[in-house]
Amino acid sequence: MILAIETSCDDTCAALITPSGEIAANIISSQTVHSRFGGVVPEIASRHHLTLLPAVLDDALATAGVTLDDVTLVAATRGPGLVAALLVGFCAAKSLAAARELPFAPVDHLHGHLAASFLAPSSFEPPFLALIASGGHTLLADVNDAGPQLHVIGQTLDDAAGEAFDKGARLLGLGYPGGAALEALAATGDPDAFAFPTAARMGGLDFSFAGLKTALLYKVRELGEAEATRLRADLAASYQRAIVEALTIRVRRALKQTRATKLAVGGGVAANGPLREALGALGVELDVPPRLLCTDNAAMIASAARYSPVLQFPDYLELDVYATGERTLVA
């Protein structure tokens, strides 16, 4: 069994998978306390990880019906993410491994999102183009093998796609996090009612969502409070459509550039229905893992560990986390 821990943001996660990639347990304890702050507060997330993690680990072992004696490899997210949050899970994972002199695999969070596609039973084999879109990251990667080297060919220049969803939701008075609420509201609106920018004229494979958010802000002000409230569903539908188009335009370009015939999608935004629909219409083989494997989870980290360099005891004792810098990215 591979045991993995993920605490890079506000979800406290532990999972167990078999050496061949079957999920035995995938426990996610989502912290709801952040909604009243309108965003994730690192210090609060870290405090919760510390208190939640022992029970989340126990829960994972109990769900899988195993004990620590059955664990042959321990893995944890090393970065990128919130350092204080990462440290809780990473130090706990190193300690679990060290106490039992087990091998340890430090995993890059983005490699984890890709590796969600390698989990059984529907393992999606490289080469493929990957789109990872969440509240923390938005990037396109040319994936040639399952390893941690990530060949990034496009990324966001400002906000992440999930952030754009959340900020739009807040402007429309839907609270935080509001991505799902915005999608639900959009389903009842007209996506052609307003023309929001998709940065289509910006060439290349990089993303930009800051202009879109500003456009929504100005439109809401221009309409005035009463009118904006009356047209809320149309605003949501048009705004969502712009995000989906901005993503799809660049995926289409990247498919052409890389000549990839397969596309894998990961990150919380992959759960968005209209996005799945738009990507499904591109005419390539598409893999979108189930929702629980798209948002942050530890099963994807365990999956990535299967393709990551493994350190033997005691070579990992002095490993530290990283916020952004050291990840094994080839830009």
Binding site: E43, S46, R47, H49, L50, L53, P54, L57, D58, L68, V83, A84, L87, V88, G89, C91, A92, A93, K94, S95, L96, A98, A99, R100
Partner: peptide
Amino acid sequence: TFTGLRIGIATAQALAQAT
């Protein structure tokens, strides 16, 4: 320091859980 405390306590909790 908050982060310092959590490194020590996360380590202690995990060592105790493992042993």
